[in-house]
C-alpha cells in the first residue's frame, strides 16, 4: 500500500472512530435520534478526511489543498447554528425546558468535536506519513484518551455539596429548608407537594461555585436533567409542578424542588451531582485579586 493511501486510511479511520466514541447516547436524550447519529457521523468522517489529507497534500507541495482546512472550519461553524436552532425548536415542546444556556453549551460541544476529529486525523496522518502505521495507530489511541480527558467538563458535584432538604409550607409558601420557592394557592396542590415532592440543597464549596450556581441558565440545566432522569409529575396544564431552582440570597445556596414520578432522594442527589457545569455559567471570581479580597 502506498504511503499516501496508508496515511489517509489511518487518519480517516481514527478520526471517525473518535467521533463515534464521543457521540453520547444517554438520558440527556440527545443525540439519541438515529438520524442525528447519522448526521454527526457523516460530518465526523468529512472532518477526518479533511484532516488526514492535509499532510500528504503538504508533502506533495499542494499548498492550495491546505487552505481547504480554513474553508472547512467555516463549514463546521454551521454545525453549531444547526444544532442550536434544532434544540431551540424542540425545547418549546419540552415539559421542562433546557434553557438557552444549556442549548448553547451543547451546540458548542458539537462544533468543537468536529475540530478535535480534524486535529486527530491531521496528527495521526502526519505520524503515519513520516514513520509507519503502527505509530499512527498509537497516536490515534493517545489522541482519543487525551481528547476525552480534555473535553470532560466539570460537574455540579465537583463545585458543590448536594444534600437532601425538607419540603415544607408556611401558609401558601413553599420552602425547602430555609429557601423560599413560590406561593401555591390550592390546598390540593400543596398536599401533592407534601406527599410526593423532593427537595435538594446545593451548597457551593467556594465563591467560584457560588457565582456559577447563581447563573440562571445553570439552574435551569439542573432542573432539566433532574426531571429527565426521575420523570416529572406534570402535564402542559399543570404548570405548578414545574421543577424550580431558587437561590438563598443570604448564603448563595441553591435549592431544587421537584415532583418526580420516581420518589428516590439518593438518585436525585446523584443526578444533580452529575449535571454538567455549563461553560457559559462557569465563573471564577477567586482567580482575580479583587475577587479573593472580596471573599474574606
Amino acid at each position: 500500500m502506498s504511503t499516501f493511501l496508508q496515511t489517509m486510511l489511518i487518519g480517516v479511520l481514527s478520526g471517525s472512530l473518535l467521533r463515534y466514541v464521543m457521540l453520547k447516547r444517554d438520558y440527556r436524550l440527545y443525540p439519541s435520534y438515529p438520524h442525528g447519529v447519522v448526521i454527526h457521523l457523516a460530518l465526523g468522517v468529512i472532518a477526518a478526511v479533511i484532516g488526514a489529507v492535509a499532510i500528504p497534500a503538504l508533502a506533495e507541495k499542494e499548498f492550495t489543498a491546505v487552505t481547504f482546512l480554513a474553508l472547512a472550519a467555516t463549514q463546521f461553524r454551521e454545525v453549531r447554528s444547526m444544532e442550536r436552532e434544532m434544540l431551540q425548536n424542540l425545547d418549546q415542546t419540552n415539559l421542562v425546558t433546557r434553557g438557552p444556556d444549556y442549548i448553547e453549551g451543547i451546540a458548542r460541544v458539537f462544533e468543537a468535536r468536529n475540530y478535535l476529529v480534524m486535529f486527530t486525523a491531521l496528527l495521526v496522518g502526519g505520524v503515519t506519513f513520516w514513520s509507519n502505521f503502527f505509530y499512527g495507530i498509537l497516536t490515534g489511541l493517545a489522541a482519543l484518551i487525551i481528547s476525552r480527558k480534555l473535553m470532560k467538563g466539570k460537574v455540579v458535584g465537583e463545585i458543590a455539596h448536594v444534600r437532601a432538604g425538607k419540603v415544607r409550607f408556611e401558609g401558601a409558601n413553599l420552602f425547602v429548608d430555609d429557601i423560599h420557592f413560590m406561593n401555591l394557592g390550592r390546598e390540593q396542590v400543596r398536599k401533592i407537594y407534601l406527599e410526593r415532592a423532593l427537595g435538594v440543597i446545593i451548597e457551593p464549596y467556594d465563591d467560584n461555585g457560588r457565582a456559577t450556581l447563581a447563573n440562571n441558565g445553570q439552574r435551569r440545566a439542573i432542573a432539566h436533567d433532574a426531571a429527565a432522569l426521575l420523570g416529572i409529575y406534570k402535564d402542559v396544564d399543570t404548570a405548578e409542578f414545574t421543577p424550580i431552582v431558587r437561590r438563598s440570597l443570604d448564603t448563595g445556596r441553591v435549592g431544587l424542588v421537584i415532583v418526580p414520578l420516581e420518589k428516590d432522594i439518593t438518585i436525585l442527589i446523584e443526578a444533580v451531582k452529575k449535571v454538567p457545569v455549563l461553560e457559559s455559567a462557569f465563573s471564577t471570581p477567586l482567580k482575580t485579586t479583587l475577587g479573593r479580597k472580596a471573599a474574606d
Binding site: 401558601a172 406561593n183 401555591l184 405548578e240
Partner: peptide
C-alpha cells in the same frame, strides 16, 4: 382549578 387548567396558569394565594 378550572381556570388554571384551561389557561395553563398557576394559582397563587
Amino acid at each position: 382549578t378550572i381556570l388554571a387548567r384551561v389557561t395553563e396558569g398557576v394559582i397563587h394565594d
